[in-house]
Design a protein around this nucleic acid. Structure first.
Lengths: 355, 355
DNA sequence: TCCTATCACTCTCGGGTCGGGAGTGCTAAA
DNA sequence: TTTAGCACTCCCGACCCGAGAGTGATAGGA
C-alpha cells in the first residue's frame, strides 16, 4: 500500500518533539479512553515546555492528519494514521515476565501436534492480550498426505486423511452394497500405501487412476475419496479460522457501539472474511508482525478494529497465520510483542515436528 | 424442581380469562419489547371487555407473581414465572413452512456422520431462531471404539480413536526411539484388531493388559494410548459444547445490559458450565423439550436468559442435547418447535447410522 | 356480584435552559 | 521560537417543565 510507505516514513519527518507528543497522546488515550489535553502531555513529557507550546504541536499534528478532535473544547484523539505512525516508530518491545512465563508454560506441555497447538495458542493469545485470538491452520491443499484410512462406522464409511501437519480430515461416504469389513480393510490398506507421501493434488490424480481400474463395489468408494481430496485441494475444507476469547471484545465494548460490535461478531463467524483478512499480508520476511489499523482495510474500518498478525513458518515458507483483533484503541505494544513471541514459538514447534 | 410442579399447575388455576390476558401480555411484550398496557390487551383480546376490567385482571396477575411493573405508570411485563406459565400452557405448536423446508433441506444433504450433523444443526438452530445454537455431542465415555490407528507424522505419532458415532479422537504421542514405520503399522494393526468393538473403558483395560506384556519400545507407546483412552473415559476430552450464532445475541443485545451480555459470552466459552447446564435435564421421555427460564437456574438468572433444549436419542437412550439460548423475552413458540423438530431429525439420523 | 366509565394521580420521557469546566486558539510579549 | 494570558467554544450534568401513558380507585349500572 502506498499509504503504508508514506506513513512509515512519517515519524522521521515528524521531528522528535512531534513524535514524542504523538506517542504520549496514543499511550494516554489507550490507557484512559479519554481525549488527551495539552496540560496532561506537558506534565508527562520530559520536554520541559509549556502547555501552550504543546498546543501548537497538537494543532500541527491535527493538520497533518495524525490527531482528531471530538469537539472544539476536547483533548486530542489519535486517528488511524496516528496509530499507524505510533506503531511504525515502535521499538522492539519486550514482554512482561508473567507473560513470558505463560507462553513458556504453554509450549512446555506434553507433546502436541500443530493443530492442538494452534487451538491452545489462540486461547493463550486472547488471555494474554485481552482481545480475541485468531489462527489460520496450514492450508490443506499444500500438505502432503501421510495416511489414508477407510473405516466402517455403522451404516456409513469414514474416510480419514491425515496430513503432514497432523490435521485429520474426515469425510463420510456412503457404504456401497457388497463390501464387507474384510474387503474394506484390504482396500484401505491398499489406498494407504498408494497415497502416503503424496501431495493432496497428486493423491487425487492417483486415486482417480485407481478408481478407473477398480471393480464396481469398490469403485464408487474410491470415487468418494477422490471427491474428498478434491475438496481439500481447492480449499473448501479445513479452511477454518480459529477464534477464541470474543467475550473479551464484549467487555471492551465500552468503546464500541452496539451495532459495530454486532457486525464484528458476525464477521468473526464468517470464516471466509477472516481468512482473506488474515492471509493477505504475504509478510515481509524481516518484518514479521503485520498490523492493520481501522481504515487501512474495509473490514477493519467497518468495525473500528485493528488486527495484529504474524505468520508462522517452517524455514522460509509460511504455513499459516495467528493474530488478535481488538479496538483501534489497542495496546499495540503488548499485542505486537505477544503475537510475535507466540508465532515464533509455533514456528519452532512446527519445524521440530516436521523433522 | 418443586417450582416446576407448582407453576405447571398454575395455568389451570388461573382461570381462562387470566390465562388469556397473560398470554397476550407475553406475546405482545415478546413482539414489541415494550411494557403492555390494558388498552392494547383489550383491543387484541376476543373477550369483549373494557380496559378497566383488564386492569383488574392485571393487578391480580401481578399480585400472583406472573407480571411485573417497571414503574407505576408503565404497562405490564411478564416475570420469569409468567413466561413459565405461558410456556407450560402452550399447545403443540407448528413450524412455518419455510422453516420446515430449511430443516428438510439440511437433512437431505449428502451423507453426514453424527458429528458433522451436529455442527450443521447448531448453525441451523441459530439461523432459524435468531438466537445462539448449542449442541452437546455424544459422551465419548459411553461409546464403542470402532477403530484405532497409530500414524507416524513427522517426529511424533498420532493416535486416532474412531468412536461408534463417527467421532475421531486424536492424541499426539511421543515417538519412542527405535520404532520404524513398519513396526508402527504392524502394532497399529494389532491394536486395531484387539480393540474394535469394545467400549472405551473396556478398551483401556485391554490396552493396559497388552502394555504389560509388550517389549520396551512399543510399551511406552501403548501406555500413551491407554492414557488417551482414560481421558476419554472420564470425559475430559471430547466433552465439547458446540456454539454457533453468538452474534445473534449481540444484536438482540438491545434487551441486555453490557455487563450481562459479557458474562453470557464468557459462559458460552466455558464449556463445563454450558455442559452442566444442558445435560441436567434427564428429560421426561414424553415431554421432549425442556425450557429453563431466567431465575429457574443460577446461570440463566445471571444472564437474564432462557434455554430451550432437547435430547436426541437412539431408542430410549439419550445420546446428547441440542438447544438454543436467548433472552428470557424469547419467542418460545418458534424456539420450542424448532428445537423439537431438529432433535427429532437428529434422533432419526443417529438411529439410521447406528444400523 | 361483576363489569364499566370516569377521573385524579404518578411516573417516564424528551426538550429546553443554565452554569461550570475543560481545553482550545489567538495574540502579544519575552 | 516559546510563553503567558485570556476570551471563546462546546460538552456535560443538573434541573425543570409539560405531555403522555397507564394505572388505581371510586361510584354507578347490569
Amino acid at each position: 500500500m502506498a499509504d503504508d510507505r508514506e506513513s512509515m516514513a512519517a515519524p522521521r519527518e515528524l521531528g522528535e518533539r512531534k513524535a514524542t507528543v504523538l506517542r504520549i497522546v496514543v499511550e494516554e488515550y489507550v490507557r484512559t479512553g479519554e481525549p488527551v489535553g495539552s496540560e496532561t502531555i506537558a506534565e508527562r513529557a520530559q520536554l520541559s515546555v509549556s502547555p501552550a507550546t504543546i498546543r501548537n504541536e497538537l494543532s500541527a499534528l491535527e493538520e497533518m492528519g495524525y490527531l482528531g478532535h471530538p469537539h472544539t473544547s476536547a483533548g486530542r484523539v489519535p486517528t488511524d494514521l496516528g496509530y499507524r505512525s505510533f506503531v511504525n516508530s515502535l521499538p522492539a518491545g519486550r514482554l512482561r515476565e508473567t507473560q513470558k512465563r505463560a507462553i513458556s508454560d504453554f509450549f512446555a506441555q506434553t507433546v502436541m501436534d500443530l493443530e492442538e497447538t494452534l487451538v491452545g495458542a489462540t486461547q493463550l493469545l486472547s488471555r494474554l492480550t485481552q482481545y480475541a485470538g485468531l489462527a489460520v491452520p496450514p492450508n490443506a491443499a499444500d500438505e502432503r498426505v501421510v495416511h489414508v484410512e477407510l473405516v466402517g462406522v455403522g451404516s456409513v464409511i469414514l474416510a480419514l486423511i491425515v496430513g503432514q501437519h497432523g490435521h485429520v480430515d474426515k469425510r463420510t461416504l456412503d457404504r456401497p452394497d457388497g463390501i464387507d469389513d474384510g474387503e474394506l480393510a484390504e482396500l484401505s490398506d491398499r489406498l494407504g500405501r498408494a497415497l502416503a507421501g503424496r501431495t493432496a493434488t497428486d493423491a487425487e490424480i492417483e486415486v482417480l487412476r485407481m478408481s478407473a481400474n477398480a471393480p464396481e463395489p469398490e469403485r464408487s468408494l474410491i470415487k468418494g475419496l477422490a471427491d474428498a481430496l478434491a475438496e481439500m485441494r481447492n480449499g473448501q475444507a479445513g479452511a477454518h479460522v480459529l477464534v477464541r476469547g470474543v467475550s473479551n471484545l464484549a467487555g471492551e465494548a465500552a468503546t464500541w457501539r452496539r451495532e459495530t460490535i454486532q457486525r464484528l461478531f458476525e464477521a468473526l463467524e464468517r470464516e471466509s472474511e477472516m481468512l482473506s483478512l488474515l492471509q493477505t499480508p504475504p509478510g515481509d520476511p524481516e518484518e514479521d508482525v503485520h498490523v492493520t489499523i481501522g481504515g487501512e482495510h474495509p473490514s477493519t474500518e467497518e468495525w473500528d478494529a485493528a488486527i495484529v498478525s504474524a505468520n508462522y513458518r517452517v524455514g522460509d515458507t509460511s504455513l499459516g497465520t495467528i493474530g488478535v483483533v481488538g479496538p483501534t484503541r489497542m495496546d499495540y505494544v503488548t499485542a505486537i510483542a505477544t503475537v510475535r513471541a507466540i508465532a515464533r514459538r509455533i514456528s519452532e514447534l512446527a519445524t521440530a515436528l516436521d523433522g
